[in-house]
């Protein structure tokens, strides 16, 4: 993350400059956003609150030149910067979310000034309150199911004889080839059944404790750090009090020895369940 280093000779601007918006809440300013002022956000700028009426936003100053830089750097630097912003964004949202119900904003929501944030809060107060009411007491929990790659640790199916016997030439190469193909096909069908069963099992287990569900895209590639192939990646909207029960229910579906893994993340602020907030102009 060295490339995420941002020029910070002048870390914070005056309140007149552009501000990055992390989350909005109906809680009092003192109840969110690290009273000591030690909570920092994007580019390590201190996080502060903007309140209008009875809604409060968590914001921090951003420097215009950081904005201008985006898209101008080598890819590695851009990705490092993106990671920095994503993590900082989530860290601020999370700190507030521990204390109260918040609406997490989408990444890189930037207002030209603090006044503009205040205007947004005033014009959107009704929508914000409605959304906060809807999500009150609810958290998002991520549930990912994995199936270990068939090659891993020999696998549960007994295909050992074939691979072990490849040393000695089979009587008929053609027949051996066909047998191998058949075995592979069988194994694949078994795996598909296994995957479907695990996904169904995990979802059934979670559904009993949740009020809503969103299926995220399966995680693949370098960033997918799971213990196998990601076969389900769901977000569940769960009452705070039911998080434990959901966790227990879904992890009970796992059977690591058989290559069936379940990972639970969160609780998160309800990112996957918030609706657009419409501000009424005029």
């Amino acid at each position: 993350m060295t490339t995420a280093q941002l020029p910070d000779d002048h870390p914070a601007q005056g309140p007149g400059g552009p501000v990055y918006l992390y989350a909005v809440t109906a809680a009092r300013p003192g109840e969110v956003g690290a009273p000591g002022g030690h909570l920092t956000g994007v580019a390590d700028a201190p996080v502060r609150t903007v309140t209008a009426g009875d809604v409060t936003a968590l914001v921090s100053s951003v420097e215009p030149r950081h904005i201008e830089m985006v898209g101008q750097r080598p890819q590695e630097a851009e990705l490092a910067w993106l990671e920095h912003v994503a993590r900082a964004h989530n860290a601020v949202v999370e700190s507030a979310f521990r204390e109260t119900t918040v609406l997490p904003m989408r990444i890189a929501t930037v207002h030209p000034s603090e006044d503009s944030v205040g205007e947004f809060l005033r014009k959107s107060a009704e929508a914000i309150h409605a959304e906060l009411r809807r999500l009150d007491g609810l958290v998002e929990v991520g549930v990912k199911a994995y199936r270990a790659a068939p090659a891993a640790a020999g696998g549960p199916t007994t295909s050992a004889p074939e691979s072990a016997a490849t040393e000695t030439p089979p009587e008929s190469p053609g027949r051996a080839y066909l047998e191998q193909r058949r075995a592979r096909r069988r194994a694949r069908a078994d795996a598909d059944r296994d995957i479907a069963a695990l996904v169904r099992g995990v979802r059934d287990a979670a559904a009993g404790h949740a009020v809503d569900q969103r299926a995220h895209r399966l995680q693949t590639g370098e960033l997918a750090e799971g213990p196998g192939e990601n076969i389900a990646n769901d977000a569940w909207l769960v009452p705070r009090g039911a998080v434990h029960a959901l966790h227990a229910a879904v992890t009970a579906c796992a059977d690591p020895a058989a290559g069936r893994h379940v990972e639970v993340t969160g609780p998160w602020a309800p990112y996957s369940f918030v609706r657009p907030v419409t501000s009424h102009g005029g």
Binding site: R106, T109, K123, A235, Y271, S272, P276
Partner: peptide, 15 residues
């Protein structure tokens, strides 16, 4: 997948 793709989108003329 949460911060990029989800979260509140402000609709309207403010932003």
């Amino acid at each position: 997948e949460r911060v990029l793709d989800k979260g509140v989108v402000i609709a309207g003329d403010i932003q």
